[in-house]
Design a protein around this nucleic acid. Structure first.
Lengths: 244, 244
DNA sequence: TTCAATTAAGTTGTAGGATGATATGCATCA
DNA sequence: TGATGCATATCATCCTACAACTTAATTGAA
């Protein structure tokens, strides 16, 4: 717990700020793919930091596959498709419509995964899923705990698919949503408690126990739409709302 | 083109190697969440590199949310759920079964996204998708070009959903698969050319033009299964094969 | 003895300079 | 002309030093 708070309240170090600046510069199109970055010395002068700080910032961007540095020449912006990682901008999620998009993605991932899990789950999977379910509706009704249990419930289902990539992706998306909601509540105390609908979870669990893929998928889909609505995000998106 | 070759043949810098070592150490469980890393000085001595190199390596891991450094105390391993990014280990994809899992994830993402795209696509989306389709079967039959066109085709469909997160995720997964296949062919020249089935793509496109979500989803599903089989990966996975 | 303040040591954060490796353009010379 | 060598620019790595922060030991007084 202490650890999590520390993680959220982490001080912004200089390399992080420089990396964030350059990152935004690239995302916004100020620096197009193929463009050459200023030299390390120029950047260090521009930001008023040491060259080491600039290098650490560039090391981060390079690890993301956002830029490529070549000895003797300079650093260049890479095309978005060449990114080595997926990273979601927490700022953008403050926009409800972006949050809705993320929920839509989550729905796609989890609905079909629930079907897979229903077909493949072993007994030990059902046990761990049940354990999370019990924590959710049981004694641990204090907010953080039940939200953690909710998340664990979804992660365990993803794990029951036996596909580690599915597990990774679903865990990631859920965590992004959780932290965004958490942050929104911190800054806007008026925000109601997020209520967890245990019934929806039970229906998913029952379908998994029955080994019924179609029922599991339908229950998961209904649950995510419900969860989105409970945090004030309207789903499903209109059929043409996405395209502009 | 030159740029891409450079990107693939990039030399392994010292920070990258140190980061890879620590990363594997964490993934393998040698360093559990909450554990404290050795001090920067210890690491620099252990690897025989300067402290700056160690710091750049740690900067990368920190940007990924894999570790958290706290001034005056040390650096600590974070729980996998707290990762700020998704990163796929290229090494692991050399295992055919892992590749199959990634194809399975791709199938989940793209099938339903194709349905969304069919419902939401605008005329300009159809145009860019058609352009990619033409490049695929047209003059650009030389390998790289048609593979690029194939990828573009899928990315444009993802874009037609109007959901940038879907676009990001699908682009990422497709790119990982592409680069892995590319690398496999480089190291194993015996490997046949990857043949692209234009017919499957045309069926997807037709469904998008018709605005028929069900047909688009079915065509996309069939296409990805076919594409997987063409690169030697058997899909679909058996219903219980994933769980162990 | 107990508790608060101070001190010391250890660790990460930042700064700045020095040297090596690599790429590019220019001048020199056969 | 063409090839070679040099100067320059840039990133890669190393080194030292100091600042900021945390922890624990030490000291001092009530």
């Amino acid at each position: 717990m202490k650890q999590r708070l520390a993680a959220i309240g982490t001080v912004e170090t200089l390399p992080h700020r420089v990396a964030a600046f350059l990152s935004r510069e690239i995302e916004s199109g100020g620096l197009n793919p193929g463009a050459r970055l200023p030299t390390e010395q120029e950047l260090s002068e521009k930001f008023g930091v040491s060259r080491n700080v600039v290098r650490e910032a560039i090391a981060q961007l390079r690890a993301d596959g956002m830029i490529e540095a070549r000895q003797g020449i300079g650093a260049f912006v890479l095309a978005p498709e060449q990114r080595a990682t997926i990273r979601i901008d927490r700022e953008a999620l403050k926009d409800t419509y972006n949050m809705a998009r993320l929920f839509e993605l989550r729905c796609i991932l989890e609905a079909e995964s629930a079907a897979l899990a229903a077909a493949r789950r072993g007994k030990e999977h059902l046990d761990s899923i049940k354990a999370a379910l019990d924590r959710m509706g049981g004694e641990e009704r204090w907010e953080e705990g039940s939200i953690d249990a909710d998340l664990l419930f979804h992660r365990e289902i993803a794990r029951a698919t036996g596909n580690s990539y599915i597990h990774t992706f679903i865990s990631f998306v859920c965590e992004q949503i959780r932290q965004s909601i958490h942050y929104a509540r911190m800054t806007n105390p008026l925000h109601d408690l997020v209520e967890i609908n245990v019934g929806e979870h039970v229906r998913i669990y029952d379908a998994l126990v029955a080994g019924d893929p179609e029922a599991a998928e339908a229950a998961m889909r209904a649950h995510i739409v419900g969860a989105a609505n409970r945090v004030g995000v309207k789903l499903p998106l209109s059929k043409t709302g996405g395209a502009k």
